[in-house]
Design a protein around this nucleic acid. Structure first.
Length: 724
RNA sequence: GGGCGAUUAGCUCAGUUGGUUAGAGCGCUUCGUUUACACCGAAGAGGCCAUAGGUUCGAAUCCUAUAUCGCCCACCA
């Protein structure tokens, strides 16, 4: 008779069990069956900026569940982990920390500052990796990658050079999103619009100007080069085509052409818009269409570069007031009203975005080029395509499947509106652009050019550039390694729907272009974890559920099961501590079922699993159905249904009904041994089915079985997934 | 303005291609300390599946409209 303690105490077992797995070497697929089919998940690299939060816990749980199941099914299962240098995020975090001591990055200089960032990143990396392990992640740590390590640097430079040579990466002076606070340009996708109160001023540039315009930003009007009206607007038709000179507008001379543009809403304001090509994305496009000059009046620090002495060199917000006053004094202001307005801010720093013209690096998404090598459905090697077409085609052809499918619509919509991707950043932490200058000469290469006097471009790349290469850079690309051939394209990309554009789209772009392959066959998107009232978790609300606390309190398996139970893919979930507690009870139930079964065994059962009674027959049927349903559900990424089925079977079929029935069957000599065999069979099969979801608990129990010579397989982790 | 989604038990949510009395967790009521488990068991209350039409032998599930809520994109300056 085998004695187990009365209740499952997770924290006593988890570290020991994790070490057992790690020491077995079986996280590394090289140590699994050689001939088997590969199954690959590349882990979305967590940023090296902080500690594990419940979002990480969710992705680890889902991916670990998928990978463990495949490993048990006999696949050569690779879950390749890594971390992300997260350029802006990490740099600004370190800047904040240094600022506590009154130090700015400029005080340290590039080299010294980067040293500080790297120290921070290393420490942060160690923390988060250990926390991932704590969640039970069965990842192959021997293959761990970092988006900013040397192999990835080589991949980044190779990809850059190749795109540069194909004319897909180009440098141009155009209006970009400037983050004044972060002192860098950011891409369109990193701009977040926030609603604010604003004043709408209606005014005329001068007394004899025929049209009044409305604006929330009078300070930008110093850079106006046109006034745009709707082509059908009867009020203004007579003026279209004229150019009107304004001798003095706050100290500047303006020359304004009256243009017609479909973009203008005749209902808003006066139906006329002062066009500021240099400081508005929309206006810039209008200026392109109408061949208007660009006049920059605001600099990188958000200060005015022109205007009367009271204006020049002041911040935009100050200049706005001064100009409003000037309009009033000169009797040009017709109206001033309060409105709600969406202001562009930077996702990372929260700073205001000041559109302004600047020379930057871009990826051309609409430019045709020859795709040298293609394994993509519907695209031949050597075919002329655009990056946009590649991104669209692989989803359209269903070569990549999206789960839930509705997100493919969002994806197409994004692609249709996609503009060239700005990839250069004026920050220090990141991959430096592999371009060197010497006088008028420019060199792009994987290595620095020979000879003296070459200066490397000071900018770094958008962090999503290197993340875009992640599925193949982690496998050794650009070298044609064995890993690359074996594991790419990968099988599943599992991540939150919030980075569909940032990351997934960029991976598709980079993989199809650089390798001619899709990066992954399946996209699985999970929802956001919210609190029990369905609010976002935030520090200010004080409703954050810390996964580490939960693991300590209820056991990692309880948290894992709670994160999957009763949730649907792609849908936000409410997570209450009580739910985790409930799942701990489920774990305890399994524990006590095991106690009962083990207490009633007399050594390893040697009777056949052959039903003698109605109860026997029923439970074996139910078990079979559970295997079928949970296997199918897992195949189709319906983890929650598999979990639900297992919960029902274990608790309500096995424990509530069969265990009770077995008590009398065990008393009866004629059914005793067969009942033992069935109990044991149901128990060990349940362990196997539950293992991907609750790895620690089930492995702990399995070890007890193994140590008592009840099972032959030393590790549940690589036990064979039940088929019947 | 464009797109997507949600509306199911007191709360938070599942419900696979339409198929018998609609499920779970938590909460609630009553009873029970019989040696797997009180981190439990038994029994139970609680739902015209948002509303109105339609398709069908049959609809929570498919279609149309309406209402309310949420998210994403655009950026009316």
């Amino acid at each position: 008779m085998i004695e187990l303690e009365k209740n499952y105490n997770a924290s006593e077992h988890e570290q020991t069990i994790y070490k057992l797995w790690l020491d077995s070497g079986k996280f590394n697929p090289d140590n699994l069956e050689e001939a088997a089919e590969p199954f690959t998940i590349i882990m979305p690299p967590p940023n090296v900026t902080g500690t594990l939060h419940v979002g990480h816990a969710l992705f680890v749980t889902i991916q670990d569940t998928l990978i463990r199941r495949k490993r048990m099914q006999g696949y050569k299962a690779l879950w390749l982990p890594g971390t992300d240098h997260a350029a802006i995020a990490t740099q600004s975090k370190v800047e904040k920390l240094l600022f506590k001591y009154g130090i700015r990055r400029s005080d340290l200089g590039r080299e010294q500052f980067l040293k500080k960032v790297e120290e921070f990143a290393q420490e942060s990396h160690d923390t988060i990796i250990n926390q991932l392990k704590g969640m039970g992640a069965s990842a192959d740590w021997s293959r761990e990658a970092y988006t900013l390590d040397e192999p990835r640097e080589k991949a980044v430079r190779t990809a850059f050079k190749s795109m540069y040579d194909d004319g897909l990466i180009y440098q141009e002076n155009k209006v970009i999103n400037w983050d004044v606070k972060g002192q860098t340009v950011i891409s369109d996708d990193e701009v977040v619009h926030v609603e604010r109160d604003a004043k709408l001023y209606t005014f005329k540039y001068s007394h004899d100007f025929p049209i009044a315009i409305a604006t929330t930003r009078p300070e930008t009007k110093l850079g106006d080069t046109a006034v745009a009206v709707h082509p059908d607007d009867k009020r203004y038709q007579q003026f279209i085509g004229q150019t009107i000179e304004v001798e003095d507008f706050c100290g500047e001379k303006l020359s304004l052409k009256i243009i017609a543009d479909e973009h203008i809403d005749p209902e808003f304001g006066t139906g006329a818009l002062g066009v500021t090509p240099a400081h508005s994305m929309v206006d810039a496009e209008m200026a392109e269409r109408n061949n208007l000059p660009f006049i920059q009046v605001i600099n990188e620090f958000g200060k005015m570069t022109v205007g009367s002495p009271e204006i020049i060199d002041t911040k935009t917000t100050v200049a706005r007031e001064v100009i409003a006053d000037w309009l009033k004094q000169n009797n040009l202001l017709e109206k001033e009203e309060d409105i709600k307005q969406n202001v562009a801010t930077a996702e990372r720093t929260g700073g205001i975005i000041e559109p302004l013209p600047k020379k930057q690096w871009f990826i051309a998404v609409n430019k045709p080029f020859i795709l040298k090598h293609s394994e993509l459905d519907g695209i031949e090697s050597g075919q002329e395509v655009t990056l946009k077409q590649l991104m669209k085609q692989v989803i359209q052809s269903s070569q990549i499947s999206v789960n839930p499918d509705r997100f493919s619509k969002t994806y197409f919509h994004w692609i249709d509106n996609l503009r060239d991707w700005c990839i250069s950043r004026q920050i220090w932490y990141g991959h430096r652009i592999p371009v060197w200058y010497k006088g008028a000469e420019t060199y792009c290469g994987v290595e620095a050019p020979d000879g003296d006097g070459w200066e490397q471009d000071p900018d770094t790349l958008d962090t999503w550039f290197s993340s875009g290469l992640w599925t193949f850079s982690t496998l050794g690309w650009p070298d044609q390694t064995k890993d690359l051939k074996t594991f790419h394209p990968t099988d599943v990309l599992e991540t939150g729907y919030d980075i569909l554009f940032f990351w997934i789209a960029r991976m598709i772009l980079m993989s199809t272009y650089n390798t001619g392959q899709i990066p992954f066959k399946n996209i699985y998107l999970h929802g956001m974890v919210r609190d029990d009232k369905n609010r976002k978790m935030s520090k200010s609300l004080g409703n954050i559920i810390d996964p580490l606390d939960m693991n300590e309190k209820y056991g990692t398996d309880a948290l894992r099961f709670a994160l999957i139970f009763n949730t649907a893919p792609g849908t936000d979930m409410a997570l209450a501590e009580n739910k985790i507690k409930g799942m701990k009870h489920f774990g305890n139930k399994i524990w006590n079922i095991s106690r009962f079964v083990l207490a009633n065994l007399e050594g390893k059962p040697n009777a056949e699993v052959e039903p003698q009674t109605d109860a026997d027959k029923l439970i074996l049927e139910q078990l079979k159905e559970t295997i079928t349903i949970s296997t199918k559900a897992l195949d189709e990424f319906r983890l929650h249904e598999a979990a639900q089925k297992l919960y029902d079977f274990v608790w309500h079929d096995f424990a509530d009904v069969y265990l009770e029935a077995s008590k009398s069957q065990l008393e009866n000599e004629s059914t005793r041994t067969s009942t033992q065999a069935i109990l044991f069979h149901c128990l060990t099969t349940s362990f196997k089915l539950l293992h991907p979801f609750m790895p620690f608990l089930t492995e702990t129990l399995w070890q007890t079985l193994y140590n008592n010579q009840l099972v032959e397989e030393p590790l549940l982790m690589i036990a064979k997934w039940p088929t019947e």
